[in-house]
Design a protein around this nucleic acid. Structure first.
Lengths: 154, 154
DNA sequence: TGGGCGAATATGGGCGTCAACGGGATCGAT
DNA sequence: ATCGATCCCGTTGACGCCCATATTCGCCCA
């Protein structure tokens, strides 16, 4: 398996370390990621974590912008400057720095969520709330679509 | 790694010196930069620091301007005249001169921010404010794009 | 089908190394 | 002689390395 799938919650120890789920570590190795890179997600209190190829996508996008306009600068600032390296120690743990805690609200536990080509880190209770909100939105969407279809057929 | 990534905050000592993050120093060496060159960023209170190829970028920009107009002259003055060399001592520190403090408001601490091909130096609290502004702009961009897509599909 | 064994994983903590930091010593220019 | 810049060394604290323990889960066998 070469994609980040499913989720897990792990505890942060007294030294501020947390184990990355073994399954994720296997994917990291299979994909040949040396270092992990974490970005603060734009609209949710979560971190997007992946290899450096995570940046490639952003850099391609930036290349489409006029490099002398503000937007290109903002994008570069966001992906180059507002990220952090997560170094796996040889037991497969990373240290949770203030940089990570600030954006996510993480304190004692971390929820790891697979997202295919990358994974996310959440504060568990916020993840739960977010998950419920996502389900509610999708449900409304589905019901709205059904209502439209009934309306059209009349 | 050959790009300037992530960020760090370091203290200025009583002699006015500050350590350039070890990770950045490694990139400097890998890129073969002898001296570092610092330019005052145009629209933010930050310094753009990199090798002399940093100038290439600005010179390309100037080349796009009509040499008979004032803008080209202004730009040349800005990038050729308004920069400073930063010499790394053998512990990897630079001295923070008034030239650097003036434009940035730096006093006791320096925030180093990777930007891919170069890095920036900020006064930490100003960096924080700027970062939030950038995120807000990017979020608006994202939401505007989502609204467009909905609009098209109707 | 239930119990127990063993491997893999999560977790806790001691220890060495390195980077950031502080300050004395040296050199040179004014 | 003084000031400033550079070198050099010692200290400190954070982080990575290593090993020990615990807990979970799957597997095998009775």
């Amino acid at each position: 398996m070469d994609r980040f799938l499913s989720s897990a919650i792990n505890r942060i120890d007294s030294k501020g370390r947390v184990s990355v789920p073994a399954h994720f570590r296997a994917v990291v190795q299979k994909r040949g990621y040396g270092d992990l890179y974490a970005l603060r997600a734009l609209d949710v209190p979560a971190l997007d974590v992946g290899g450096l190829d995570l940046l490639d996508r952003y850099e391609e996008r930036i290349a489409l912008e006029d490099p002398f306009l503000q937007t290109a600068d903002d994008m570069s600032f966001f992906c180059h400057g507002d990220g952090a390296f997560l170094k796996l120690d040889q037991d497969g743990r990373i240290t949770v720095t203030d940089f990570l805690r600030e954006h996510t609200g993480i304190e004692a536990e971390v929820a790891f969520v697979g997202r295919g080509t990358f994974f996310q880190m959440w504060e568990p209770s916020r993840l739960k709330a977010h998950g419920e909100a996502v389900r509610a939105r999708l449900l409304r969407l589905r019901q709205a679509a059904a209502a439209n279809r009934r309306g059209e057929s009349e």
